[in-house]
């Protein structure tokens, strides 16, 4: 197990290096640079050139790359031009918010998704099965951002049920809330964004769980369990569920990049102060250090997520540990 772990972790290093190189060159080869942020009618082009020099944008690209690399090994991601702050401060403030949103979406995806999948597998060909199948098809094919807009229009603008943006009410009001009021306030702000973010993956998980359940139910040991006279409930919960869940776990790692990508859109629609929105702005502003840090970080999180999923999988499925490997 330990060898396997070490091998997997070591394997991620070239991966991350490759990712960072890729981003660096994509970002720097594009025309334009962050100094245009400071442009105005009164700015002399001379001043911009001076700033480019001050920031080192006139150095050869490989030199800039190695500087950046050396910096990031020391945990220094540089200074964000758009935010006038160290990049790590920007990340520290926004990353947790994206994680909150993603975590909430994950919870929705796996609880509702798995529950719907099981129900529709156990009641195969029933009305409820058809309804779940059809709905998940639609949700899976739905543009998430469009769904978000519709939610906003209906539940926020017209019905006033949920707030349209932010994580909490106005800060000075929020501070006066009791513990429970705070919880409710946060949940109300979280509801629409998390649902919008999780919808597609939720549908996929329910489909996947259903298929997986159906396969397991047909297996011999389930028949044996039934034959032994165990109640249907016990069969499902004790035997089928556990085994059907195995492949579903791998989806966890698979959905991480998906969630980060989705967060870009959802945070834009619901004014959620997370990293996705920061990423979009950084890209538009050519804020190199911030783009690099944000993309690198999301890739690193995805790699970590995959690693965790792999380890979890190998822990549940001993064949992996014996070094037979798993073909993803």
């Amino acid at each position: 197990m330990t060898t396997y772990l070490i091998r997997r972790v070591a394997g991620t290093i070239p991966l991350l290096l490759g990712i960072s190189t890729l981003i660096f060159f994509v970002v720097h080869l594009a025309p334009g640079d962050p100094t245009s942020l400071y442009w105005s009618e009164d700015t002399d082009p001379e001043v911009l050139r001076l700033m480019q020099h001050n920031f080192g944008f006139d150095r050869p690209l490989p030199e800039q790359y190695f500087r950046w690399l050396a910096g990031s090994f020391r945990g220094e991601f540089g200074y964000s031009f758009g935010h006038h702050r160290p990049v790590k401060d920007v990340i520290r403030e926004t990353l947790p918010n994206t994680l909150i949103l993603s975590a909430a979406a994950m919870v929705l995806i796996f609880t509702i998704g798995i529950a719907a999948g099981i129900v529709s597998a156990v009641r195969q060909h029933s009305f409820i099965d058809h309804a779940v199948t059809l709905l998940s098809f639609f949700f899976y094919s739905m543009p998430g951002f469009w769904f978000g807009l519709m939610m906003l229009l209906i539940f926020s603008y017209h019905l006033h049920w949920f707030p349209a943006s932010h994580m909490t009410s106005l800060p000075f009001r929020y501070d006066q809330f009791s513990f429970w009021e705070k919880g409710v306030d946060r949940a109300r702000h979280l509801a629409l964004p998390a649902l919008t973010l999780g919808l597609g993956a939720m549908a996929a998980v329910s489909r996947y769980t259903r298929t997986s359940m159906l396969e397991v139910i047909r297996m011999d040991y389930i028949r044996t369990a039934r034959a032994k006279g165990l109640s249907e409930r016990e069969v499902i919960v004790r035997h089928a569920f556990r085994n059907a869940l195995l492949p579903v776990i791998t989806l966890f790692g698979l959905y991480l990049p998906f969630l980060f990508g989705g967060a870009v859109l959802v945070e834009t629609i619901f004014a959620w102060p997370g990293m996705g929105r920061v990423a979009v702005n950084a890209i538009f502003q050519r804020d190199y250090p911030l783009i690099m840090a944000v993309t690198f970080l999301s890739a690193a999180l995805v790699v970590a997520g995959n690693l965790i999923a792999d380890v979890a999988y190998s822990w549940i499925d001993p064949r992996i540990r014996r070094g037979e490997g798993r073909e993803p």
Binding site: L152, Y157, A164, S165, H166, T268, I269, A271, P273
Partner: peptide, 12 residues
């Protein structure tokens, strides 16, 4: 309040 969407601002 920073709300980077005009639609949301109008709604609010």
């Amino acid at each position: 309040q920073i709300v980077p969407s005009r639609t949301n601002l109008i709604s609010q």
